[in-house]
Design a protein around this nucleic acid. Sequence first.
DNA 1: CCGCATCCTTGTGGATACTG
DNA 2: CAGTATCCACAAGGATGCGG
Lengths: 132, 132
Amino acid sequence: MTTPDLRQELQQIQTDPRIDRLVEELIGRVADKWTMLLIEILTENECCRFGELSRACTGISQKMLTQTLRAMERDGLVTRKVYPVVPPKVEYRLTDLGLGLSKAFCGVWLWAEAHHEEIAAARAAYEARQEG
Amino acid sequence: MTTPDLRQELQQIQTDPRIDRLVEELIGRVADKWTMLLIEILTENECCRFGELSRACTGISQKMLTQTLRAMERDGLVTRKVYPVVPPKVEYRLTDLGLGLSKAFCGVWLWAEAHHEEIAAARAAYEARQEG
DNA sequence: CCGCATCCTTGTGGATACTG
DNA sequence: CAGTATCCACAAGGATGCGG
């Protein structure tokens, strides 16, 4: 697995506390389950309608879907194109900014795919320890 | 900035829906603000006491700190070592698993550092559009 | 010093029903 | 089809006080 040392790169960034706060807030906004899933989906099929997203994003409620998409649009991660036809047609697609985030998330997905068994094991071990 | 194509790697993973659900759940667990911050902090200073973490992790409440650390311990991301002394002394440090996640998060941090201004701009533009 | 227990407030998110 | 609006349950999360 190819893992370059992004860590070093990160270490070298000047740390202005005010910017840190902004960045942390941004992380809080963007690092949530639905946002990550939607970005994944929109990376795989470049252009999606509301209903497609709704079906692809298993378990999400209409409300959360709308809400998350709005937030992403606001943050410039996706564009929302409305066609003035009946029945209505709305298309979502990632912006370059969103695509960048998608790439950044790849590492996390790969990590999760690679280690979910280890984590299940760790949990089992933890439970076992509690009982003893 | 060095960004290898992790995307391709990710694409090639076989997608068993059952595993996908596990992975998504894992993402939901791990992709939260406090977890990410604590991992950052524990990457920078390898070994931390409770109080240190409390101070380093600005804004976190005692409760959330304990809760998050427990969850991380349960998932095998950190170890918790208790010294039987008075006053009590407890040390936390990342496991190899936790360190791997730390690396995976680097990309997201870098992205956030690099683009927080763009996002602020996107938000401003969005607000402006709403008023018009 | 580390952390659990309790109370209480706020917000998150699901279900349902209704519109252009 | 693509939402908005409303209601409601539950859980997240802060504040405080106590205990090993």
